[in-house]
């Protein structure tokens, strides 16, 4: 479902003497439907960079990034937009929303975007928010004023609203209490059970051992640091 072949990434800083910083070389990995792969490595090793390359947020310098058959490294913007709408979900560490939009709508949005009926989308959103212990009295408010932990849970609810066949999870359990952490882990297990291919970053070792089928150390892909 997700396959990287010899991907490299470098940043060129034109305004700082055109310094070229290579950050990734020869990155290859393969994730089958129903499988969860954990990215590991020290902070700064390039876990998030790799994830952003898969999402098309960072432009790969070379190699192929195949998600559901589409090469994200070469695709047209509208193909990537369609891929993100239908196929590839991304739970980032930060929630970015339009001010004033109620939480329930924020969570239902990915479902509405794929043409789900409004009431069904709102029902599913309500179900997810309830599972993640967001009090119902907050649902009609914009999440911009919520606490960090609440925003993160809203973000997770939004990320799991649509049943994406491929998902990227950037520290989904970070800073959650035991009960919510458990809920998130079961959401991940349910996603795997329905056949989603998942790439995740988990600093929480127990969580990683529970949901991930294999680990990839991204420092192997760091230029000049061949493992």
């Amino acid at each position: 479902m997700i396959e990287l072949k010899d991907v490299s990434k470098s940043f060129t800083l034109h305004n700082q003497g055109s310094a070229v910083i290579p950050v990734m070389e020869g990155a290859s990995l393969k994730v089958a439907p129903g499988e969860c792969v954990a990215l590991t490595g020290a902070s700064g090793a390039g876990k998030s960079t790799l994830m952003r390359v898969i999402y098309g947020n960072y432009l790969a310098a070379s190699g192929q990034v195949l998600v559901g058959g589409l090469d994200v490294a070469r695709a047209e913007p509208r193909e990537i937009l369609a891929l993100r709408r239908e196929t590839l979900g991304y739970v980032s560490q930060f929630l970015r929303v339009v001010p004033r939009v109620p939480t329930l709508e924020v969570v239902a949005e990915p479902l509405l975007a794929v043409g789900c009926a409004r009431q069904a989308a709102l029902d599913k959103a309500a179900d997810l928010l309830a599972r993640l212990n967001i009090p119902e009295r907050l649902w009609s408010l914009s999440p911009t004023t919520f606490s960090g932990g609440e925003q993160q849970r809203v973000n997770i609810a939004r990320g799991f609203a649509h049943d994406y066949p491929a998902m990227l999870l950037d520290e989904p359990t970070a800073s959650l209490d035991a009960q919510n952490r458990e809920t998130v882990l079961s959401l991940i297990e349910e996603a795997k059970a329905r056949g989603a291919a998942i790439v995740g970053i988990f600093h929480d070792i127990e969580a990683r051992n529970r949901v991930c089928d294999c680990e990839i150390d991204v420092s192997e892909f760091t230029p000049g640091m061949v493992a």
């Binding site: 940043f11 947020n57 432009l59």
Partner: peptide, 10 residues
Amino acid sequence: AGLTDQVLDD
């Protein structure tokens, strides 16, 4: 030119 988040983030 490109995807908005790609142009802004990279």
